[in-house]
């Protein structure tokens, strides 16, 4: 069951990577990186169950948190050009 899950995850990781390399627009690549982060979280969780160590779930949760903050930082950079701005500016 977990092995099938892992195979599916690896396939989606390859697909997300293809989109990140090929993706024509900026947002394709950001979305691909975000999806890849989510798949890393799931891969850690599933491999924890595969290896009989379900406590890796905590680790996966922290990765999810970090992925979220990272994507917000990247999006803010794309929109404003820096992290300090709190004014709505022109899109770059």
């Amino acid at each position: 069951m977990f092995a099938v899950c892992m195979v599916g995850l690896l396939i989606t990781m390859v697909l997300a990577m293809v989109r990140a390399i090929a993706g024509p627009t900026v947002f394709d690549r950001i979305l691909a990186a975000n999806a890849f982060g989510t798949q890393t979280v799931l891969m850690i969780a599933v491999s924890g169950f595969l290896a009989g160590r379900p406590e890796w779930l905590d680790l996966a949760l922290v990765y999810a948190l970090m992925n979220f903050i990272g994507v917000i930082a990247v999006l803010k950079f794309v929109r404003f050009g820096n992290l300090a701005s709190d004014q709505p500016g022109r899109p770059t």
């Binding site: 997300a16 990140a20 390399i21 690549r29 950001i30 691909a32 990186a33 890849f36 890393t40």
Partner: peptide, 8 residues
Amino acid sequence: MLFSIFSL
């Protein structure tokens, strides 16, 4: 972006 994926 690819470097970020590489790290993950």
